[in-house]
């Protein structure tokens, strides 16, 4: 409709342009300019020649990432962890939200909600302390309790698969309170007449939950999934790094792309190879988002991200 040119727009909305300018400049500065550095992934990096002066070396830097299947392993881990974390945390959040919403005791409701929300405020560094505090073999609380109960202490560092559960647990631990608040809000927005009518019809609480609450909040659930799909290839670096650290025996089941990139830098001292891995991650992420968004736009256009 609007056939006016850029200049006309600039003149008409110059204040709006000015108002958006700080953010645009900031994002340009912080995010876009460093994007030029992706060429590092294709360079034989030399310190004295710098990013732009170093010579091109094609896909040489990518070889290392895909050698001995590491690239595939960390990609698989990243996707699986994110899916698992997404499903468990959303599931718990919906559950908690429904339970809290149906509660009659006002005081209990408030206090429990506050407590469950608390972990959202806690940094991963502190979670790292928790993990050490609870699970380390010699002095961890878990083993102290087991010993006090005259049971054999367990060494969780020997069984990598357990860490999938631990990571999943702390992920939910941190996010459930926050997500459940959103779901509670979404439940509150359901027309109360629905519930009243159901009650008059003699529906019990299970039926209300399964036939009214869950169908009504399903768009919210869908949106929450969508928002998180965008991060499917970005492992929460801070979480993994603080919980697992550089503990080699756990890598098979805990290594995600981000921790792998960080560790490569640490051990190889080479900056071009990690850059290649980062580039691979960005491209894959981009492709997945575009595919998912395209699919949604075709099926549920209202929910498309952009």
């Amino acid at each position: 409709m609007n056939k006016h040119g850029v200049l006309y727009e600039l003149r008409k909305n110059r204040t709006l342009f000015l108002m958006a300018l700080p953010a645009v400049l900031l994002v340009f500065l912080i995010s876009y300019i460093p994007m030029a550095g992706i060429i590092l992934a294709f360079k034989d990096y030399r310190f004295d020649l710098g990013v732009f002066g170093s010579h091109w070396n094609g896909f040489e830097n990518f070889k290392y990432f895909f050698n001995s299947g590491t690239g595939l392993r960390v990609t698989r881990n990243t996707i699986l962890y994110n899916l698992l974390n997404l499903i468990t945390s959303q599931l718990f959040a919906v559950m908690i939200a429904i339970f809290i919403h149906e509660m009659r005791g006002k005081y209990f409701k408030k206090v429990s909600q506050s407590i469950i929300f608390l972990p959202f405020f806690i940094s991963w560094t502190i979670v790292g302390v928790f993990v050490y505090n609870i699970f380390n073999y010699e002095t961890g609380t878990l083993n102290s309790v087991l010993k006090a109960l005259h049971m054999a202490p367990v060494n969780l560092y020997e069984s990598p698969s357990i860490w999938i559960v631990i990571i999943c647990f702390f992920n939910s631990w941190k996010w459930v309170g926050y997500t459940s608040v959103i779901y509670i809000a979404s439940i509150l927005s359901i027309d109360s007449e629905c519930f009243e009518a159901a009650e008059i019809d003699g529906a019990n609480v299970f039926q209300k939950v399964f036939y009214i609450t869950i169908p009504s909040i399903s768009p919210t659930i869908f949106i929450m999934f969508l928002l998180n799909i965008g991060r499917i290839l970005r492992g929460d670096f801070q979480m993994f790094y603080q919980i697992v650290g550089n503990n080699g025996q756990l890598f098979d089941s805990t290594d995600v792309i981000d921790t792998f990139v960080f560790r490569s830098l640490l051990t190889s001292g080479d900056i071009a190879m990690p850059a290649a891995a980062t580039f691979y991650q960005s491209v894959l992420c981009f492709v997945i988002i575009m595919a998912v968004n395209g699919f949604i736009r075709r099926t549920r256009p209202d929910n498309a991200l952009f």
């Binding site: 050698n67 550089n246 080699g248 025996q249 890598f251 190889s268 190879m273």
Partner: peptide, 25 residues
């Protein structure tokens, strides 16, 4: 051989450390 070295480094960290501390059953 920098790609191979980097890969070996990773393998050593992951598979040899646990052996060195007797963590492998």
């Amino acid at each position: 051989v920098k790609n191979e070295m980097a890969a070996v480094t990773n393998i050593v960290q992951q598979y040899s450390f646990p052996l060195n501390y007797g963590y492998v059953k």
